[in-house]
Amino acid sequence: MSKRRPYVRPMEGWWKKNPYFVEYMIHESTALFVAGYAFVLLVGLVRLGQGEAAWNGWLEALSSPFSLIIHLLFLVAILYHTYTWFKIMPITMPPIIVGGKKVGPGVITGSGLLAALGASLVMFALVFWLGG
């Protein structure tokens, strides 16, 4: 008879045991804030569909101190999402070869962050132009 009795260790709390995994869980949880913000926008869209009075009610809710705090939280969390999204990008995308050499991870992350900055500036400009 076999004397083997392989012991399987439990996975409970695995993500608390290594700083690398703690960071992973933090950047994964930014999704909650992305969802929260999308939900605020969804309510706004529904209010827009209900007419001017409903829309103005939503705008008014947005200018409350509570809303400001929530949006500051959204901003911090989603900024962190942006940073980590592009930080992971070098391992999630196929290698890019330029001039026979593989583009380094720093360049990929940097380009992503620059693209986000560019997208932000374009949106600011559009709001100025269309909304001014």
Partner: peptide, 22 residues
């Protein structure tokens, strides 16, 4: 889920996370 720790600990710099994600 692109944790990426596999590539971090690889002693031969194979970057398995990249292979999985490609």
């Amino acid at each position: 889920s692109a944790v990426g720790y596999c590539s971090e600990v690889c002693p031969k710099h194979v970057d398995p996370a990249n292979a999985v994600n490609i």
